[in-house]
Every structure is written in C-alpha cells, then in structure tokens.
Design a protein around this nucleic acid. Structure first.
Lengths: 203, 203
DNA sequence: GTATGCTTACCTATCGTTCAGTAAGAAGCA
DNA sequence: TGCTTCTTACTGAACGATAGGTAAGCATAC
C-alpha cells in the first residue's frame, strides 16, 4: 500500500509525542513501533521537528474545521457557545493523543509550535472569541474579558483528558470525611462544563 | 553561610524544571547556574529525582498551608471558595516557576510525581472539594460533580500562568474583524475567575 | 586527623542526525 | 521481449554531542 509506512510513522509519532512531549520522545522508539528503522523516518521527514509539525498540524486543522462547522450549524450565541464546547470536547475524546500533545506544548509555552501551527490554533480560538464578543454585543452575554472564558473552556477540557492517572492517584489520598465523586467521562464533563460556562457568561 | 550552595542549587533547579520539565532539564545547566559543578548536586541530593522532589514538595506544602489558612479565615461557602481561588492564584503569582512545574507534571500525567508529592497536592485539592460539598449540603451551591469545578479553577489558573508567550503569539494571528481584549494580569484573572466560578456554582 | 563540601576527570548510554549502500520496480530504448 | 538506467524506499553502521552518574582526590574547619 502506498505511504503505509509513512502513516505508521505518523501514528506512532503521535502516540509518543503525546506520551513524552517533543524533546523526550525518542525517534528510535517511534521507528521501532512503526516497524521501520530510524533513517526511514528521515526519508519521509526532514527532521524530528518536521515530523512533529506534521503530527500537530494535521490535528489542529481538523480541529479548527470541525469546530467551525459545529458552530455554523448552531444559531444564537448560547447555542453556538454550547456547540463550540461540545465539538472541542468530542474532538479531544476522539483523538486521544491530541490533548496530551497540546498539554505538553502549553506547558512549554509553545516552544516547539511552528508559526503555521500557531496560526491554525488561532482559528479555533478566534471562533470562540467571535461567539463571546457577538453574544456580548447582543446583550446575551456579560463578559469582562473573553480571554478568561476561553482559558476556562480550553484548559479544563485539555487538562481533564490528560490527567486521568494523577487525578485518580490524588483522589485516593483525599481525606475520607466526605464522599469522593466519580471521575466524570468526557461526555459528562463536556455537558457539565457547557452548563457552567453558559451560566457564568449570561448577562 | 551554611547550606548556601544547597539553596542556590534548589533555586536554579526550580527555574530549570519549570522551564524544561523534569526530563529535559539538565543537571549540568543547573549546576552551572548555581555556581557549582555537577557532582556538588550529587553531594546534596541522591539523584535527579530527589532534587526534583525537594523542589516540588517544598512548594506543594507551602501551597497547601497557605490555601488552608486563607480558607479558614473566611466564613461561608461563597467567601471560602473565593478565598481559595484568590489564595491559589496569589501563590502561583508569587512563586513564578511553580505553575510551570505543575503544568509539566500534569501534561505527563504525574509521571514524575512521588507519592509524598501526590499526597501533598491532595491536601490542596481536598480543601476545595470540602468547600464545594459543604456549600452543596447547605443549599448555597448546586453542583453536579465537584471535580469539574475543581478542574476549571486549577487548570485555568495554571494554564494562564504558563502560556503567556504562546497566547500572545496566537492572539497576533486572530482575525482582525473583532478587537482583541488585553491579556489579563494574574490579579485580574483571579478576580474574574472567582466571579465566574461563583456564578456558575450558585444554586 | 578526621569529617565536610566540594572539584577534576571520566564512565556509559542514548540522543538526533548523516552517509553509504541496496533491493525492487518503473521507464526508456532496442 | 530483453537490457539498461533511474527513482523510490528503505537498512546498517557510525558520528558527535550530551545526558545522568561515579570514583578519587583535595582543601578547609574543627
């Protein structure tokens, strides 16, 4: 099959970059998991950074497209904001490794993010900014700074997806004098988050 | 002065772990910045992991203490929740490198976090869980799952602190048809976040 | 003279990267 | 069809750099 090795490399790379981040991910391990040798990666990609960008950019584009489409098919600021949150959450849920890649990138303050990737990410983020500003203009929302609502949405969704293990570990240490609530699924989280965000931005 | 080199190592280590994460931070660089050589680090600490734990644990303990104290001096669920958010935000603001260390740890799903560190972190997190459950019992709050509110608070504060550069980069690409709101300061963010969270959890 | 607090020198492992070489197949020409 | 040539898609071996970690020795304080 054409490009099948290349696809395998991309898949393994996504997995390893999500697990270890750009620096700590090893090309040797990625090659081993793809069933090729290290130089085979260099045949398909210029270097480690190019491989990373291919992995990241593909998903950033898909995310921006899916979010834009979901928002367009909804009407009114409230519906659109809910559609945004649910589309974002669904995408992270579907593309398991993507949230962790973004989390690593954010924890490095975008050190490894190319300009093209940053541009693609801004498409997704400006979608929600537009919704919030539109809602504020129409008097439906009351927002002091849309950046805060944006941060609340994006960071909560990403962190929830990437901190499953540590959350369970930390929860096991919580003092026993109050019951521990079950860890929400991505679907539940998305719904509850949308409810909370909408409640918090309504005029 | 007694232990002055040790203190210098700890300070430089905190800076480098926050900038690069556990794996990517280099002991050689940490030693250079502390004005000592690499084996001097091994004189004071068993290995890289022990140095990291010393850096992390010290701040996790301080955070839990300060948050507990702030919450205790407030009365009623609403006041206490606000006190929690503001104390957390103030701590992150004061200890510049700590948010990034936590962000790296979370993006690795706590891979490098020792049990003692996880236990210390659970003190901070169970503080807010207690507030939320108490508020729900008293009928002041209406909460489906306190984990979600917790995630919203913690992830927003940490991400805000660690993503200054990438946020500015991404913002510069945002489509120009709506004005860009200024990036909020930590103080502003904390206040706005507290307002939003309170609004979203009120019964 | 002995413990403390380091330094110099060095070890091994692993990293990203490069280079020379090669099996397989398509393309060109008789 | 049969022979040559070029391209594609790799492999094996090795490179220099850098990582965490260690062994041994030296200066100072008590």
């Amino acid at each position: 099959m054409r490009d099948s090795k290349r696809e395998k490399i991309l898949l393994a790379a996504a997995k390893h970059f999500s697990k270890f981040g750009f620096e700590a991910a090893s090309l040797e391990d990625i090659a081993a998991e793809s069933g090729v040798t290290k130089p085979a990666i260099y045949y398909h990609f210029k270097d480690k950074a190019a491989l990373y960008e291919a992995v990241l950019l593909f998903r950033l584009k898909l995310l921006a497209d899916q979010v834009e489409r979901a928002v367009e098919s909804a009407t009114g600021p409230e519906e659109r904001l809910r559609a945004y949150i649910e589309a974002f959450g669904a995408f992270l849920n579907e593309h398991g490794c993507f949230a962790a890649i973004l989390a690593h990138e954010f924890s490095d303050d975008g050190k490894q993010m190319s300009d093209r990737a940053a541009k693609e990410l801004s498409r997704t983020l400006s979608t929600v900014t537009a919704i919030l500003n539109d809602g504020a203009e129409k008097g439906v929302f009351k927002i002091e700074n849309p950046m805060v609502a944006q941060m609340m949405i994006v960071s909560t969704l990403i962190m929830h997806q990437t901190t499953r293990t540590i959350r369970a570990r930390v929860a096991s240490y919580v003092r026993g004098d109050h019951k521990i609530s079950p860890d929400p699924s991505m679907r539940d989280l998305t719904r509850i988050l949308a409810d909370k965000i909408l409640k918090s931005v309504r005029a």
